[in-house]
Design a binder for these strands. Sequence first.
RNA 1: GGGGGAAUGUCCCGAGUGGCAAAGGGGGCGGACUGUAAAUCCGCUGCUGUAAUGGCUUCGUAGGUUCGAGUCCUACUUCCCCCA
Length: 418
Amino acid sequence: MPDAAFQSEFLKTLQARGYINQATHPEELDGLAARGAITAYIGFDATAASLHVGHLFSIMTLRRLQQAGHKPIVLMGGGTTKVGDPTDKEGQRPLLTDEQIQANIASIKTVFSRFLTFGDGPTDAVMVNNADWLERFGYVQFLRDYGVHFTINRMLAFDSVKLRLEREQPMTFLEFNYMLMQSVDFLELSRRYGCVLQMGGSDQWGNIVNGVELIRRVDGKPAFGLTTPLLATASGQKMGKTLGGAVWLNADLRSPYDYWQFWRNTEDADVGRFMRLFTDLPLDEIARLEALPGAEINEAKKVLANAATRLLHGAEAATTAEAAATAAFEQGRLSDDLPTHEVDRGVLDAGVALASLAVEAGLAASKGEARRLAKGGGLRLNDRAETDGDRLVTDADIVDGVVKLGAGKKKIVLVKPV
RNA sequence: GGGGGAAUGUCCCGAGUGGCAAAGGGGGCGGACUGUAAAUCCGCUGCUGUAAUGGCUUCGUAGGUUCGAGUCCUACUUCCCCCA
């Protein structure tokens, strides 16, 4: 992106906070956004029961849009999920059934209301499902209406397709059509809502540009695309997977405490960038915090964790999570708000192997793994490393009503007899 | 339609002579050092079980040969390349 001085509040903010990777016709878009409210959308496919931290980038982009006085559209990919986006995947993934997709959409939906204000007002967010139009086309009609606007020559040149071909990996005709469907989505939203902008991750550039061109060609209407940078940590790792699995946004899959911990464990070099992207903290405050020297940067990480958790789970959950973390890590105390696993009192009366208990509590995937963890000194029982995975855990190990299990330094589960 | 090649530890890449739970790497997890950071070093990374030898299940699918099959044979599936 050129360092063009944007006029519109929206683009100024995006640029200042580091959301922009690429944009089509940036000056034109800026002018439009400066003159009045625009409508923009981002699509989300329903491939899992929850979105994860990687999607947060997109969600926050929509939030910025609304904050700047524009109208966001959340597009659920009920139709496109059935086809499967070939982008960045080496192979085709198994096709989901209608029921799975419906269930996923229902589960995903809940998260958006925390970041966006929905309603009927001019800048209220709306949620739509592309199954509403994509599933209504007849094959011949679809080909005649839209197929004529796409050349194979050009489609083959896009990265999503080119990479597959270069790696000699199969790309089915089904997936090949994803690009058309996404383009038609944009056209459809342009017609229904006067949507002029599609945003997305940088891997979506090809898909987005196609939509922009389709609208300009078919309807002669203005249309723009804007992509966000790929989200990676400063040390180059893909973001979103830490401490055992994806960082899901739904609370039932990843507790607020874990979510808080995820942000608390941010690398030093990422703190400023993440605060700009994932919190509403003012820029000058962020600049001050990220400049904290040495270990003081940990204060900034707490601010980040609090702000990010507050956005997703609410202020109360954030406070609770911080208190639990402070107690556990800084004071070595227990807090009821740590993740808890309940067991029958009888189990402890009889005694249960430590390894089994660790598996039950979710600290290890199998007993073998738990044993290895123990042997490596990574399994702790009431804060003492326990190298024997077969050691029986009994009533005698209950301290203050719970047995405290730890895997590594950061994962703690309280086992509570009931 | 004909000919040739390929599918490996359910995270990925990838070596593999009939004795193989299967080299190596990435990733992940754990330990040390630190600041709940990064970098670095060390260990672990199929399930299950013993103090320990063990048992079970894995190399595209299904059969077969063999004391023994990832490795050989047959059929099938999928993919790649060449010819038509």
